[in-house]
Design a protein around this nucleic acid. Structure first.
Lengths: 180, 180
DNA sequence: GTCTATAACTAGATAGAC
DNA sequence: GTCTATCTAGTTATAGAC
């Protein structure tokens, strides 16, 4: 984990470009220009373009795994509350990475980091539905997961955003309760 | 508007590939292989790769414009209801194109079709908030717009999906009402 | 209307100087 | 640790035969 200044710059610039133009839509030249170095310098610090992606996604994926572990101790409604709060918090702290992980299968190849994250997202989706098997609840959960990831990019990280995201999620997911 | 069999095939295959791998993530060779023809045939029917994108997005963009026109006659809560129903219907009928238009600025260049659609999406967002200027309402609207576009891809077009999407949107957007 | 062949260019990645 | 120069393979697009 040797951290150098340039290496961190590369990750920061790449995260920004990947989030806005996608992995395939961003070239090494784009990243190099953003950092202010050459393509060769990029490939001195990382083995390949995919390695840059893996490195920048890793911390977010690790925290997603931690969140999943915390949620495993809970069930039903408390689990849902904790899942919503935890997920919004995660997305806000890794807003550029969140979309890459979530939409990984669309734009990005199946690197290990993404394959590992998929069951975690599935788990999160289950927590959002509070265990309900209703297709309707499942669809609502997916809408919220994707919508939150999408909206967080490029928004300032103020408390209004956080509370608005949590609020809309809780409002949208309280479906079974209303039927009772 | 000369419609040939091959031309329609190209649009259908391209729509599918663009939706899953993005515009830059899909090559003319990918499309040609899917259609079962050569790259040259693609470029006989269309001037460029971008022209394929423009052609496949045009009908969806036109219907979005129609929806906007219909909504212009309404205000407040009825406008919101109509916007939700109309938007879900539109996304379900153009599920592969919806994401391209909505996330157009991220993955895809700014072709005229996308530049024209942007104010229409803005208008739709305003209808979703029922004119509210509250940042919280605005964020909720954006979450729903993006989430619905994202979820519709690859889901079977049954009535369960339609009603689930409408239901989650209405539930999530009824914020001001609950405060009263 | 579809094809093969190819031109012109850009991609990711390597070699080697400094 | 960073660079220029280069390689190979893939990209969009064109030319011209059929």
């Amino acid at each position: 984990m040797a951290r150098t200044r340039t290496r961190d710059d590369i990750i920061a610039v790449a995260a920004d470009l990947f989030a806005h133009a996608g992995f395939k839509g961003t070239s090494l030249q784009d990243i190099a220009t953003g950092v202010g170095c050459s393509k060769a310098t990029l490939l001195y610090h990382f083995d390949s373009k995919e390695a840059i992606l893996a490195a920048l996604v890793a911390p977010a994926a690790a925290e997603l795994a931690e969140l999943t572990a915390r949620l495993a101790a809970l069930e039903g409604e408390p689990a849902r509350e904790a899942a919503i709060d935890g997920f919004v918090d995660l997305v806000l702290r890794y807003r550029r990475e969140a979309g890459l992980i979530y939409y990984g299968s669309l734009d990005v190849l199946m690197t290990p980091a993404f394959a590992d994250a998929q069951p975690l997202i599935e788990n999160l989706c289950a927590a959002f539905t509070a265990g309900s098997a209703e297709p309707t609840d499942r669809i609502a959960a997916e809408v919220l997961l994707a919508g939150i990831c999408s909206v967080a990019i490029d928004k300032p990280d103020d408390d209004v955003l956080r509370s608005a995201l949590v609020a809309v999620a809780k409002r949208a997911l309280l479906t079974t309760r209303m039927k009772d």
